[in-house]
């Protein structure tokens, strides 16, 4: 059985907590020169902080802008960041419905699949045989690119919203099941014996020991699934052409309406990154709360 490396997915990236730098002490000095100096220092601090954390993202946007302007690319082929933000500001109405549609299936599927995966993992904690049968299957399916299987599922279950929902549920189910299962078993060494010595019942053991030790793992799975759910929803919409941002994409790329395609891509990216940041924050909070 392939071993699940929770180390790799545990919060390793940028573990320092996000805290704003102190923006100098409030200016108590009476002379304005000193006040200006302090304000300047404060702005300088904030700028430095931003650059340290976001230089990569800034470089990406600047690079995009430079690429379009320097090479003087036809804006029909590749719009500039300015053009895209202008489009989003002038025609926000075009994107509201598709965005809502995509977000709904992605989020409902995420929550549903995670709940289902965690419940089944808990159930199989009580019956090892179920776990023994389900875990290998789940591990195999986890290493299969489910998003690439979207066409198959679309064909089997029909070109409908509920198919997309089913896909997003599946996508979050397997990682959650695998991670929560292993978390339920990763209790601190000796602690189960200790609980037994105190005469704890199995249900108590589950509530007080197994469940807390599985929480960080469950949140890791949530973060891993979050981005995949959005991706899967977009892919399904793209291939089936029903509704949502993926459909906007498919439509406009076909018509070479790159401005709209890029705007839809940017919206999808913003929401995906936001969801990633939220789930990563949850994961870290869970790690602090439940991990030793």
């Amino acid at each position: 059985m392939s071993q699940i490396n929770t180390d790799l997915v545990a919060p390793r990236i940028a573990t320092r907590s996000a805290s704003l730098p102190k923006v100098g002490t409030p200016a108590r000095a009476t002379d304005s020169v000193s006040v200006i100096r302090r304000v300047g220092q404060g702005i300088w601090n904030v700028l430095g902080w931003c650059v340290r954390r976001y230089w990569g993202v800034m470089a990406l946007v600047l690079g995009w802008h430079a690429y379009v302007t320097v090479l003087d690319i036809n804006r029909i082929v590749m719009p500039s960041p300015g053009a895209v933000s202008q489009e989003l500001l002038t025609n926000p109405g075009r994107y509201v419905d598709p965005t809502l549609s995509t977000l709904t299936v992605a989020l409902v599927g995420l929550v549903g699949g995670t709940t289902l995966g965690a419940s089944l993992a808990s159930l199989s904690w009580f019956a090892r045989a179920i776990n023994g049968l389900l875990t290998p299957v789940a591990v195999i399916l986890r290493s299969v690119p489910i998003v690439a299987m979207v066409p198959v599922l679309a064909r089997v279950f029909g070109y409908e919203q509920r198919t997309i929902l089913l896909i997003t549920v599946m996508i979050s189910f397997f990682p959650t099941f695998v991670f929560v299962s292993s978390g339920l078993r990763a209790t601190p060494p000796g602690s189960e014996d200790l609980f037994r010595v105190f005469g704890a019942r199995r249900l108590t053991l589950f509530r007080r020991l197994a469940l807390p030790s599985a929480m960080p793992n469950g949140l890791v799975a949530l973060r891993l699934s979050a981005a995949d759910c959005i991706l899967a929803a977009l892919v399904a919409e793209f291939l089936m052409g029903t509704e949502g941002l993926g459909h906007v994409f498919q439509d406009t790329i076909g018509d070479l309406d790159m401005l709209t395609a890029w705007s839809a891509a940017i919206i999808a990216t913003i929401f995906s990154v936001t969801l990633f940041l939220i789930t990563r924050r949850l994961e870290r909070a869970g790690h602090r709360r439940w991990s030793a």
């Binding site: 991706l231 977009l234 891509a265 990154v273």
Partner: peptide
């Protein structure tokens, strides 16, 4: 975190 499919264009 960018959806891979959004990179298509």
């Amino acid at each position: 975190a960018i959806p891979l499919i959004a990179l298509g264009p």
